[in-house]
């Protein structure tokens, strides 16, 4: 009979998350298009919208090509929306799997968010390839800053999703509100506008939103000339840290009763 390895906590986590990711890929895409659709769909969406928008004006927005301006906005807001959505739903979706004591609610959350993040990385690469083929200028002035901003946003999305997912097991109304809460973010996160277009006296209406900071900062790290009006890396990192802390606090105190629900 099959013997079981003695594993430490890390190895168990690694195995479980790996198994869950395979399961995610395997069950999420059952038609002929399969996994490729997960990547092609956002590429097409982002590309078409950015391209049309780029054609509508002179082709430049505050010194960066409008295509690039739009592509960053759309890619990052989608990163947030999809990661948040899948992370928050993973808690409930994996419920039958909690029969295995090795599977704790955070593992499906990490597995499905990691998958979504990987998809977005592929989308980023895909769009860069299309830009290269169309002989558009590909420029990232400060690559490290770009990575930092994107990672912070990804982390923020995962843990915000985790918090939301765990809490909505106790307050089911939350998951009904989810769409209502996230949909407006598409319009107020600076996807379609720059903070430079907003008069300073109205910044307070928008600048609480860490997604806006991530998007504007990413544009800034790609083209330094774009500027970082009204946004700051420190704010983004602090909010991320706060959300990670809060989410872990809630998770740690509630996961055992969440499993029993």
């Amino acid at each position: 009979m099959a013997t079981v390895l003695k594993r430490n906590q890390w190895q168990i986590w690694k195995d479980v998350i790996f198994a869950l990711m395979v399961r995610e890929v395997r069950t999420g895409f059952n038609d002929k298009l399969g996994l490729s659709w997960a990547i092609l769909h956002p590429i097409a969406f982002i590309f078409i919208l950015s391209f049309i928008r780029g054609r509508l004006d002179g082709g430049e927005t505050h010194s960066i090509p409008t295509f690039v301006f739009m592509a960053y906005g759309l890619l990052l807001i989608q990163l947030f929306l999809t990661v948040f959505d899948s992370a928050s739903k993973a808690v409930k979706k994996a419920k039958p799997l909690y029969a295995f004591r090795q599977v704790q609610p955070i593992s499906p959350v990490i597995a499905s968010s990691l998958f979504e993040i990987l998809v977005k990385v592929m989308v980023f690469i895909g769009i860069s390839v299309i830009m290269y083929l169309m002989q558009m200028e590909i420029r990232v002035d400060d690559f490290l800053a770009l990575i930092l901003n994107v990672c912070a946003l990804a982390l923020f999305s995962v843990f915000f999703g985790l918090m939301f997912g765990v809490l909505s097991l106790f307050v089911p109304e939350l998951s009904k509100m989810q769409n209502l809460l996230t949909r407006p973010l598409f319009f107020i996160s600076g996807v379609f506008f720059s903070m430079r277009d907003v008069p300073p006296e109205y910044w307070y209406l928008l600048d609480w939103n860490p997604i806006l900071h991530a998007i504007e900062l990413s544009r800034y790290s790609a083209y330094t000339s774009y500027g970082n009006t009204a946004v700051s890396t420190n704010y983004l990192l602090l909010v991320t840290l706060g959300v990670v802390f809060l989410a872990m606090l809630i998770y740690r105190s509630l996961w055992k009763s969440a499993v029993s629900r």
Binding site: D15, R23, Q102
Partner: peptide, 23 residues
């Protein structure tokens, strides 16, 4: 328990084996 209808028997088996740390 823990068997996903969209996956094959083999895939389900591997999943359960992996989660339980089968050598």
């Amino acid at each position: 328990s823990g068997i996903h209808p969209a996956m094959t028997g083999r895939e389900n088996t591997r999943f359960i084996g992996k989660v339980n740390g089968v050598e």
